[in-house]
Structure formats: C-alpha cells, structure tokens
Write a protein that binds this DNA or RNA. Structure first.
Length: 817
RNA sequence: GGGCGAGUGGCGGAAUUGGUAUACGCGGCGGACUUAAAAUCCGCUGGCUGAAUAAGCCUUGAGGGUUCGAGUCCCUCCUCGCCCACCA
C-alpha cells in the first residue's frame, strides 16, 4: 500500500498544474464568470506566516468550488510593490528596492505555490513595473484633467521617522499608521485627489454593497455626512462676517455666543486690540499641543474671549465671540454658534466661562443639564410652539430667503493627500514651468520612469530624494519648451492599488490601461477577500477611482467589489498577534518541511474556526488535520486494492453507504455556499468516520462499484480544501483529467432520509424518551407510538393529556396536568 | 462617550434559525498491535448524586419574561474584542 507522503505528491502536482496551465483563465461566454480576488500582498522582507496564508486559502477554496460548479473563474495574483515596506527593507539591507522586490516576490510566489494555490500566473504584475505604473500615471493625468487632482500648500501630517507626509486616513490617534511615531504638522505644497467631490456617492452607494456592517459603518463614519445649515453672523463694527455650520438651525435663538477655531484666519482678524495678546498666546498654546493631547476626551474646556461681538441674524441679539480649541479649523467653517442649552460641549464651555444659557426646546429633559433631544420650540419668537423638526425646515427656508443662511451638507472626509517625499513610488507626472505653471506630462511621454539611485534615503527637509537627481529634475516645458522642472514627489502606494483589480482583466495591454470589453467581461470583482485593516484606506480609494472611471465612460459599473469578505486573524498559539518582532510567527514552510504538507495546513486554516473570526493557531490541531487526510488516503487505498469486486453475491444492501455520501454532498454543498468551511470539513470528517464503520458491514469485495463511486465523490468534496492529495488519489482511481476540472457532485433527495426516524418524546417540555418510527408513519401512528413508549408511559400514567404538540420528523410533546 | 460584534465542556468550536445543547477536532483516560517507543486502530470523555454502561437532577456570562418547549425571541445587568472619538 502506498503511504500518504505529501512531500512527494505536492511538488509533483504543483509542477503538473503549471505545465497544464490549469488555472489560466480566458473570456468564455458559454459559462457564467466569477472573479475572486485576494488583496494583493506587499512583498516585504518578512516571509508570509500562517495568518497571511489563511486569506489565500479561503480564496483558493472558493475558486476551486466555483470552478467545479461550472463557473469560468478568474483568480489572479500580483504584487503591491511600491511603497515604504519595500523601500525600508532595501535601505536596511543595502540593496536596491528593485532587487528587494525581485527577491521578495520570488519568495512570496514560492510560498504561495507550495501551498497549492491555483493562480493564473500569466496575469502576474507588480505595481512597480513601468508597464503598470505608466497607467497609474495616466490615471493621475485623467484625474488632473477632470479637476480632481490639485496642488496646494498647506499644513499637513508629517511623519518624522518615515520623513514623508501622510494622508488623513494614514494617521491613527496621532501616530503614523506604519511606524507608530507621533506625527507633526508641516507646511508643504502637496498634491491632492478631490475625494470630497465623491463623498455623497461614496456614502450613498454603500447601501447596495454586500459588505459587513462594520466596514460599511466605518466608511460612513469616516465620510461623516451631516445635514444642516450655514448661518452668517455679522461681526459688530466691522465688515466681517462669520459663517457657522450647524446641524440644529432650529436652536438659533438659543445661540448665546460664537466660538471660532484658534487656527481660523478670521479669528486673529476680528480680535480687538485689548484682547490681541491673550488670543495670540492662546493660539500659540494650541499649536504647541500634540494632536494626541488635543484629542484627549473629557478634557477641561479652554478658550479666550476675542473682545468682538456678533449679531445673531434671526433676532438681532449681540453675542460675544470666543476662540477655543474644541472647535476644529478643518471641519465645517471653523466656527460654530454655541447653543449651550442643547449641546454638551457648548454647555461645558458656558459653565466654565459663565456664559448665558438659554433653553429654546421644551421636552422632558431636565433644565440643569444640556438637552439634546427633540421637542417643542420656546423662547424663539415666531417659531414658538412648532416641533423642532418643523422649526428646522422653516428657519432654514427663512434664512435662505433673507440671504443670511442656507441649507448645507458637511462631510468629515478631507481630500486625499497623495504626495510622498520618498523614492520608491510612481513619479507624479507633472512639470513645473516658471512661465506656464504646473503642466501635465504629455501622455505619449509616459511613463515618467523612476530613475535609478544609489542612495535614496529621504532627505527630511520636505523634499523628495528625486530632487537630487538633476537629469531627472531638469526638463523642458511641454507647453513653451522652456526650461522646467519635474515634480519630484512620488504617489502614495494606495494610488497604485486603486485600480490593480481592473488591470488583472487585461494585464499586458501596452496601448491602454485595459481593454473595455475584457473589463466588462470580468468586473466587478465578485468576491474580494482580505482583512479589515483597509476599511478607510484602500477600500475607500479604490471605490473613488472606480467612480471616476465610470464618469469618464471607461467602465460601466459604479462599485469595484460587490462582495467583501473580511477574514479573521490567525493569532499565535499564545493568543498574541503574530509578528516578526515578537518572534512568534509560524510559517507554512516549516510545517511542510515537518511533513504535514500544504493540504493539512489548508484544512487547519479553515477548520480552526469560522473563516471570519480570529483564532489562535494550534500546534496540536495540525496533527488532527493530517490524520484526517491520512485516513482518507488509507481508505482510498483499500478501495483501490479491493477493486474488481462484483455484485454477484448480494447479501447486504449498500443503501447506507449511498446515504452517507449523498448526505455529505448535501451538507458540504450547502456549507460551501454559505462559506461554512469549518462545518463543511466537519461533515467530511463525520462521513469518513461513518465510512470506516460501514466497511465492516458493507464489504468492498461485494460492493466494489459503490465503494469506488463513494470515494470518488468524497474526494471531489474534499478537493477545494486538499487539492494535491485529492488530485493524486483521483489519478490513482484511473481518471485522466484533473479533479479540479470535474463537475461538483449532486445529491439525490431520496438518499437524504433514512427508513426510520428518531422521534423525541417530551412530557411537559422535558425529553423523556426517543422512539424509532418508520419514515412513512402517519401523525396518529407516531403519537400513538410515542405515548406507548414505556419511559414516556411512566410519566403519563395517571395524568390527563391536555395538549399534544406534533412536529413532523422531530418530536411529540405531551402537556399533562 | 458613540457604533459594530461576541460570551456554549479542560481548549478551538457545532446546533437545519423556537424542537434530543455540546456535532467535528484537539487534549485526557482505557485498550489492541509492538521487546519498547512512535505511528496506526478501537472504546470512553459536560457537571453533580450513584457500585452502575440503573435512575435522577443541573448546565449555553448573570437575573427576569414569553412559550408545551429558549443557546436561539423580549427586558435588565455584567464582561470582553474591534472601530470611531470635542465633526458643531
């Protein structure tokens, strides 16, 4: 008997599949398509561990299942190669990023291949290939042409360690998302993408996506749509006007002061001479505070009076103007009307500085704290007696009519800052000319090739290392042909990953980013699989680019990823996050070397728990996965060796064997439709245990054909999880074509039920007995049998049956006195 | 503070959505094979009372409720995880 030896069969089939181009996809109109994609990885210095591998295992199992179901499947793989991980790795090891990428992608590819993942490698590319980033630059120019890319000097987040600016999405609690250092603000001219133009669509279109509620709500939260109004307050004794944003225009009569953000330019302008010193000091203090300090919750309110007064446009009231750091310069208009009676922050501020509080909404909330609820208007002139919701509409309409306000929707999201002062990225294809200003590089001059540099460490002065390469910088203006300088910043890596899923449909097109027909065939992505960490970065950016392309008429859909699957994290056996620095990572290479094999690892990845929940890796669990495969192997060998049996001497029926398999087909199919990988594998283990029992009562020598069919079918059900072993045994069962191209098995309803049913008998809700009844027994027969059971009868004796509940196929419940 | 989610054996987790709670796996215990070990195979394994593979009681974070029947539905509370956090 041949022993199960994954070390022997796994490499064999990996080579065979590659040779047969088994996983290469082409447009085939005769079959429904399915595009399954896992986030393309950063080929960083650290090898992939079993946590990363889970992501690809899920995608691969889905792919194989879909293919066997008759879908034409696209399952590509590539490399998110630009960006800091590769560059930092290169700096650390002293090799060039180009070399680092080549080296790391080779290792990642080997790791993916040895796991048996079926990718269409003919579509492979890296985002750092000039053939690819040429088109990333082309999209930059498209955004520029559509007014969605602009350059502006402003204060931006600056990471002092990575020595580059960061997008808002990349600053988490005041620290750099990548290296964890505290970020600073720096004034630099920077390129932005106008994602704010898409805020409304990005929020609205979430409704139709099959994504988890948590990711959707993260995005909604990040986009932060608030409906309200702008109101203009004249500053007394000056021509200045302060515009405030409020979501509660109904409380306008309750506005007893104005608060302006310290950084708002108008704040200094309206400050009176006698308050100038105090305000200047306060602004200085504010700027000295780190962002973490400013975000501290429940912080004592601080602020200073500016000396100026504003006029409330609705009632002519004269109210003081203060400045305080709880009002943010970057949101809304940088100024608010404070309504302390109905806003907690304003309440706290008014209490601290002894400012007037006037209640304008009557409801059952107490007077001695702020009341944010709805209610009836009071102290509000002509609006008294209205419900707040009515008052809101009426006041906004009146303000608009008088030209002192208007309806307004505000978004929290800011424009996406894409300039990076780092070497390893796609150069921004713009040229700065003294005469013509910023001029786009003509399309026929793309790509703007990233020059080779020996020493590409960031300079830290806010300028990109590319600024040191004179041959790169000095160029001619495309418009006037005069001397000009290239833009030296590179693009955020997230720009490169905002369209890669489209490129996979047509990865080697040299004339355009992709062929419209090919994209139309494959996109949108049907299943997108990855961790939740990209919620407000990649997943938001890619959605925006998709909408831009739709507006440009390049594609015919508005969302790139119909279904998003966020896999749970694999933790180290100690329950901690796996990381190289903690030294607790487990890599598949070692497990394969130990002899478990890729198939057992794949089973383990999926069986460890629900795919979307995190789980701690279990060293012992690997043994269980291996044993299951080993038992499958051994049973198949027995079937092969007993081949040639005939049905001549039928003594025992083989119905039970058929039932086991048909039930397994039913359960595994159903579980896989719902991504129930762990229960699908459990069902297979259960079926295998039953087969081991059945071989004692249904001899293989007698029912050889049925056994042969049973193992064949079993292997097909197992194929999405354990592709190598099933392929090997499929061949040993004399099949010439790959098991992965075979059709998913079907089941016959009649084998899902047995001849007899077990009916539970309850008395007053407690289980007292089980009775066996023929599957075709009538309701009356079953109730009679239930009542006649000795155990049940004991509990029924001398009692009056008040009610009998009958659940077909399940139970009889007697309610007695 | 707000949002989303989760609490089931020694452990990872099942439970057809209101119908035998603890499937499957790990771990543990016992046995077979072996000079022995590994590997493999076969049993048993939620808790308590019991000699018992007799019988009974208890058990899904805690407490209440609805129901013949609740892990599942409703109310109150506790704990943990993730995300957002002075956004007017």
């Amino acid at each position: 008997m041949k022993r199960y030896n994954p070390k022997e069969i796994e490499p064999k089939w990996q080579q065979q599949w590659e040779q047969d181009k088994l996983y290469e996809a082409s447009e085939d109109a005769t079959k429904p398509k399915k595009y399954i994609l896992e986030y393309f990885p950063y080929p960083s210095g650290a090898a992939m561990h079993v946590g990363h591998v889970r992501n690809y295992t899920i995608g691969d199992a889905l792919t194989r299942f879909a293919r066997m179901q008759g879908y034409n499947v696209l399952h590509p793989m590539g490399w998110d190669a630009f960006g800091l991980p590769a560059e930092n790795y290169a700096i650390k090891t002293g090799i060039s990023p180009q070399q680092a990428i080549a080296q790391n992608t080779a290792r990642f590819k080997k790791q993916l291949t040895q796991m048996g993942f079926g990718y269409d490698w003919s579509r492979e590319f890296a985002s750092s290939d000039p053939e690819y980033y040429r088109w990333t630059q082309w999209f930059f120019l498209l955004l520029y042409k559509r007014g969605l890319a602009y350059r502006k000097e402003s204060l931006q987040w600056w990471c002092p360690v990575d020595k580059t600016v960061l997008a808002n999405e990349q600053v988490e609690n005041g620290v750099c998302w990548r290296c964890g250092s505290i970020v600073e603000k720096k004034a630099l001219p920077q390129w932005f993408f106008k994602i704010t133009d898409y805020a409304d669509r990005l929020a609205a279109d979430l409704d139709d996506l099959n994504w988890t509620d948590s990711i959707k709500s993260m995005q909604r939260n990040w986009i932060g749509c608030s409906k309200g109004a702008e109101v203009h307050f004249a500053v007394e004794g000056s021509g200045q006007v302060i515009t405030v944003f409020t979501t509660r225009p109904d409380t306008l009569y309750g506005a007893t002061f104005i608060v302006m953000a310290p950084e708002a330019p108008l704040t200094t302008q309206i400050t009176t001479d006698d308050q100038r010193g105090a305000v200047a000091d306060y602004i200085k203090q504010t700027q000295a505070k780190s962002d973490i300090e400013r975000q501290e919750t429940n912080r004592e309110k601080t602020g200073v009076f500016t000396g100026a007064y504003a006029i409330n446009p609705i009632n002519g009231e004269r109210i003081p103007i203060w400045t305080a750091d709880y009002v943010l310069a970057g949101y809304g208009t940088g100024a608010i009307m404070a309504v302390p009676a109905h806003d907690e922050r304003d309440w706290a501020f008014a209490k601290k500085f002894d400012l007037p509080i006037r209640r304008v909404v009557q409801n059952d909330e107490p007077d001695d704290q702020c009341a944010h609820g709805e209610g009836t208007m009071i102290n509000s002139g002509e609006y008294d007696g209205l419900e707040t919701s009515e008052a809101r509409e009426k006041i906004v309409a009146d303000l608009a009519r008088k030209g002192i306000g208007s309806e307004r929707i505000n978004y929290k999201i800011r424009d996406w800052l894409i300039s990076r002062q780092r070497y390893w990225g796609a150069p921004i294809p713009m040229i700065h000319c003294e005469k013509c200003g910023s001029v786009p590089v003509p399309e026929d001059q793309l790509p703007v090739v990233l020059p080779d540099m020996q020493s590409f460490e960031p300079s830290g002065d806010g300028r990109s290392p590319l600024a040191r390469v004179e041959e790169f910088v000095n160029t001619a203006c495309p418009q006037c042909a005069g001397p000009a300088m290239r833009e030296t910043d590179t693009m955020d890596g997230f720009a490169c990953s905002s369209w890669y899923f489209l490129r996979f449909a047509d990865p080697h097109n040299a004339d355009k980013p992709f062929d419209a027909e090919k994209v139309k065939h494959w996109l949108p992505v049907d299943d997108y699989i990855g961790g939740a960490e990209h919620a407000v970065m990649h997943l938001l950016y890619a959605r925006m680019w998709t909408k831009v392309m739709q507006d440009e008429g390049l594609i015919n859909f508005n969302e790139p990823f119909k279904t998003l699957r966020n896999q749970g994290m694999i933790l180290a056996p100690d329950g901690q996050k796996m990381s190289k620095s903690k030294g607790n990572t487990i890599e598949p290479d070692g497990l394969i070397e130990q002899g478990y094999g890729a198939d057992a690892i794949r089973i383990m990845e999926l069986f460890i728990g629900p795919w979307n929940q995190s789980a701690a890796w279990s060293v012992e669990g690997m043994g269980g996965s291996f044993r299951f495969l080993q038992r499958t192997w051994a049973l198949t060998q027995e079937v092969i060796e007993s081949a040639g049996g005939s049905d001549e001497h039928i003594i025992v029926k083989d119905d039970e064997l058929k039932r086991v398999i048909h039930r397994a087909v039913h359960r595994v199919s159903k579980d896989l439709e719902e991504m129930g990988f762990n229960t699908a594998i459990a069902a297979l283990m259960e079926a295998l245990n039953q087969l081991y029992k059945l071989k004692l009562t249904i001899p293989m020598g007698v029912h050889g054909d049925t056994w042969y069919w049973a193992m064949e079918t079993f292997l097909q059900l197992l194929a999405p999880f354990a592709p190598h072993m099933t392929e090997e045994l499929w061949e040993q069962l004399h099949h010439e074509d790959s098991i992965h191209l075979s059709s998913w098995p079907t089941y016959d309803e009649k084998y899902l039920v047995s001849d007899t049913l077990t009916i539970v008998v309850q008395v007053n809700g407690k289980v007292r007995a089980q009775v066996q009844v023929p599957a075709d027994a009538s309701k009356d027969q079953i109730i009679k049998a239930a009542g006649a059971d000795p155990k049940a009868a004991e509990y029924l004796a001398g009692k009056e049956i008040r009610k009998t509940i009958f659940v077909p196929g399940k139970l009889v419940s007697f309610v007695v006195t």
